[in-house]
């Protein structure tokens, strides 16, 4: 087994009286892509938002258990959640570039906030990040244009570039292509496969074919429980659990 970079132990999370995630143990291997699938309300988005402590930003949210990044628990008051989010970046369902910032500034905003001012450094990081996000060739001649002037698919890659600029260890993606057309979706999927050389990726998706295409391992969640976690090729061809079989063949309900 490869090196485990991120792990949850007995992770429970919810809102008010409702446990959306009910004690999940999962291990994410370095430079792998793990897909999390499951029907709406199964807890997959809540789970992924616990991984970089975004969940706690929601009023009434709670969580317990452990989230270990390189073996260190990142839960708790002693750990700065902002620092964690730099190491565990996130891309959301809808692209969310900063509306008032240029393409260039959208990419390097994280670096600037952390005090980097040197123009040559910023330029280099912007180009490297945009290249890694497979966007450089499309925007290199209009870096001063507003980020929101790009198409939806380009905006999503811009958000990926923004996340990559601070060199995260883990990249979380919460349904990153659900608002995109098939061509933009294909570009993001290609990108995911390329990016796993430099980051570990956890992706939540409703699109099972997408999970099958791009992930190495797949976790199936149902009503806050982890039902099955296996190699993607195994889970989509011969799942061990009846509930997984029923879900992925559309017999659920």
């Amino acid at each position: 087994m490869s090196e485990v970079i991120l792990e949850t132990k007995k992770l429970v999370a919810g809102f008010g009286d409702l446990d959306a995630v009910k004690g999940i143990d999962l291990r994410f291997e370095k430079n792998s892509v793990t897909a999390i699938i499951g029907p709406s309300g199964c807890g997959k988005s809540t789970y992924i938002r616990c991984l970089n402590r975004l969940h706690e930003e929601v009023p009434g949210a709670y969580s317990s258990g452990e989230v270990l990044l390189n073996g260190e628990n990142i839960q708790g008051l002693r750990v700065d959640p902002v620092a964690i989010r730099r190491r565990i970046g996130m891309v959301f369902q809808k692209p969310n570039p900063f509306p008032s910032l240029s393409i260039f500034d959208n990419v390097c905003v994280g670096l600037k906030l952390s005090g980097v001012r040197k123009s040559s450094v910023l330029k280099e990081v912007v180009e490297t990040s945009l290249r890694a996000a497979a966007l450089w060739d499309e925007v290199k001649d209009k870096l001063d244009a507003p980020g929101v002037s790009l198409s939806g698919g380009q905006q999503q890659r811009l958000c990926i570039a923004r996340t990559l600029a601070v060199e995260p260890t883990v990249l979380l993606m919460d349904e990153p292509t659900s608002a995109l057309d098939p061509i933009s979706t294909a570009k993001i999927e290609e990108l995911v496969t390329d990016l796993k050389k430099r980051v570990t990726i956890v992706i939540v998706t409703h699109n099972m074919q997408q999970a099958a295409r791009i992930s190495d391992r797949t976790a199936f969640f149902l009503l806050g429980d982890l039902i099955e976690f296996d190699d993607t090729s195994r889970l989509f061809t011969a799942p061990k659990q009846e509930q997984t079989e029923r879900y992925i063949t559309g017999r659920f309900g």
Binding site: M208, F236, T237, A238, T244, E245, T249
Partner: peptide, 9 residues
């Protein structure tokens, strides 16, 4: 249909 699991097999 892009079948999976038992359907695919």
């Amino acid at each position: 249909q892009q079948p999976l699991a038992a359907d695919l097999r």
